[in-house]
Amino acid sequence: MTAPHPHRQETRAAGGSPSGPQLQGSSRPVPHASARAGRQPRPRRAHRVERWLGRHPFGLALTAPYTIFVLVVFAIPFGFGVWMAFHDYFFTAPGVSVPHPFVGFDNFTAVLGDGDTQRAFRNLGVFMAINIPLTVVLALSLAAALNAATRWSVFFRASYYVPYVTASVATLAVWLFLFSGSGAVNHALGAWAPDPSWLANKHLVMPLIALYVTWKQLGFYILLYLAALQNVPRELHEAALTDGAGRWQAFRAVTLPAVRPVTSLVILLSLITSGQIFTEPFLLTGGGPNGASLTPALLIYQRGLEQGEPDAAAAIGLILVTAVLILATISRRVMERN
């Protein structure tokens, strides 16, 4: 931190108490001006401004860009999206105004009855069933190993993190060539290479995408676990060992409960990422073969922008977000019950 400000002493001497108890993170505005006692009385208008806008109305000006941004980029599109999902909305030539009648849940029933939507959500289920357990197990084991390791730990941590900071477009290009029909992976597997090959195989393409996303995100989750593991007192672990517990038992009885909040967070974040899977199927397969790697986010793009049905796309978006929210709630309940 920088050197203390020279005026600090002066403030104390002048008896100006540092404006009451400051609750960190408190959102409570402090409307009264008791800290100003002893200063010359101010005109009535200034008091009124203060009553209405708070002690520092300047803060309103400073946060105005942020508030406007949230309105324009989040609140209005959010409302617009919900509105779209319940209306017959389609693109028109610029300047043409046509009525967009309210259609209730028609968009939703149409979308839910559609084979593509069902396939996309089934694929997402397969993705989650592989990605989430794999992420939790790998991230926790590598973080635990890293926490116990004394040598090379900076190197290991950095290398796990490199995929996370690299653009998906760049890493997907590599995976595309590695797993292509005549790619290095199939060369390595020789006679065991799958037929049809990875990206053309409807049973393997979604697991492969799940594996890719696990690989890409793992470094971040390892970092989360590592921070939690460093806070587990070593004595607890040692006490369990002296009491005759095996290493595995000690891990289960001490470490696992200690990192439970992080596990809950990792599952939550993985769920949210899962809902956004777009770039991977888009670049690797375009959703194929025959819809086997179609995801809801990719479907939103296809329906909304390629096929010009933004209302259907908005409905899929709402269904997707609701589904992710429900799963997130369930996972939190389960994680916090024990």
Partner: peptide, 15 residues
Amino acid sequence: LAGYALAILHFRGRG
């Protein structure tokens, strides 16, 4: 700007 206002200044609507 926003971080400064939220941490240091008191104004209506900060919460």
